[in-house]
Nucleic acid binder design. Structure first.
Lengths: 204, 204
DNA sequence: GACGATATCTACATGCATGTAAGTTACATT
DNA sequence: AATGTAACTTACATGCATGTAGATATCGTC
């Protein structure tokens, strides 16, 4: 079984994509590789093989291997900030549902791959790629502050504690949650339950 | 300024180490490289340069590059389990001091590099290296259960929740705590304070 | 249908991490 | 002091990831 084109030995017909499509396909593949096989698996050759282009073509589109990595980080960070924004909206429309907020953040870190991405960024030291997250985090803090507008100073402190709490926990759960829960014989959503139960202690 | 031997151009005198010393020096250097510069910085050449031997010599001692990595993981996992064991002892001798327990676990993940190590292991998929941690975690659970021996079934559930809570949080804090706290304008030990405050809600 | 822009490929070059083989030297033992 | 073990080095080989240059094919446009 061959993953190549229609025939082997004959010159397979080229598929010509507009640059945006080529970049998008490459980033989807790169993200899949990052999530399933780790950072070292995200090579020009591996990504190229997955989408049926050569590594030279990826350099043409992204400038360099580092360019592809940066684009991947940007793309995943954008998804994370979008997810946080959605969580904010969800909170505004339906406050007092901690589990929904928790699920939104946990899913972003877990399914979206943001957890593995953040770990990769932190380990490799490319912290500048996290900068766009700063604004998203501040928006999240502001939104929660508005929703639970009680006393001024104390509220901000409590809310930043809550955000720090849920973000760190969701990150940890996404990266090493599975093996840890296995060691403790705990169910898959044990972490989410704990966070959902404790979150109100920050906000009320 | 040269990091080489006494002179350049002349054959520097060789330093011959017993294998245990050579391995220990290499692992110390490898750990430093892992913590400061990330997993990709841990190469045979980089470690060799730091301790003044050739990369071939490291292969002689560890068998292969993968052997060095495994030994590094083993060494760091042992330190982590030791730290957890010490935390257990501390808890037995002085129960009711959550901040001390929290500090012990957080320091293990942060200063000891266990956080970055665990992230590396999780990202690269070498989960079998975490197996020795399983026993340490179970010991920790048992120790806490004995200390807070109330009703049977409920206690075990609460304690595993507490361990999951503190471990995931300490891990997250060690890996991405610094940039997150910076985004939120929070103090360095904000995470520890939060965990120390919430931990009693699991145990009492 | 011819043409131009460029997406894509082939072929080659380079650097690095790893691994191997064989020689060299330090140190303990005698 | 002679000797053997093995820690250590040098020299070479290999594979992979990245990068470059030039040729080729595809598609929109005229």
């Amino acid at each position: 079984m061959s993953i190549e084109g229609p025939e082997i030995g004959t010159t397979a017909k080229r598929r010509r994509r507009v640059p945006e499509v080529a970049r998008r396909e490459a980033l989807v593949s790169a993200r899949r590789l990052l999530i399933t096989s780790g950072p070292t698996a995200v090579t020009l050759k591996a990504v190229g093989d997955e989408i049926g282009v050569t590594h030279a073509n990826l350099i043409h589109h992204f400038g360099s291997a580092a360019g592809l990595q940066s684009a991947l980080m940007e793309s995943m960070v954008r998804d994370l900030t979008d997810a946080l924004g959605a969580a904010v909206e969800q909170l505004r429309s339906n406050p007092g549902a901690p589990r929904a907020l928790v699920d939104a953040v946990f899913d972003a870190f877990d399914q979206g791959g943001a957890g593995r991405l953040a770990a990769w960024i932190a380990l490799s030291g490319d912290l500048q790629h996290l900068e766009p997250v700063r604004a998203a985090v501040r928006d999240l803090v502001d939104a929660i502050c508005e929703t639970f507008a009680a006393e001024g100073e104390q509220t901000h402190h409590r809310v930043t504690s809550a955000v720090l709490f849920i973000a760190l926990y969701a990150f940890g759960d996404a990266v090493i949650g599975a093996p840890l829960r296995d060691m403790l014989d705990r169910e898959d959503d044990a972490g989410r339950k704990i966070v959902a139960r404790l979150l109100p202690t920050f906000l009320f």
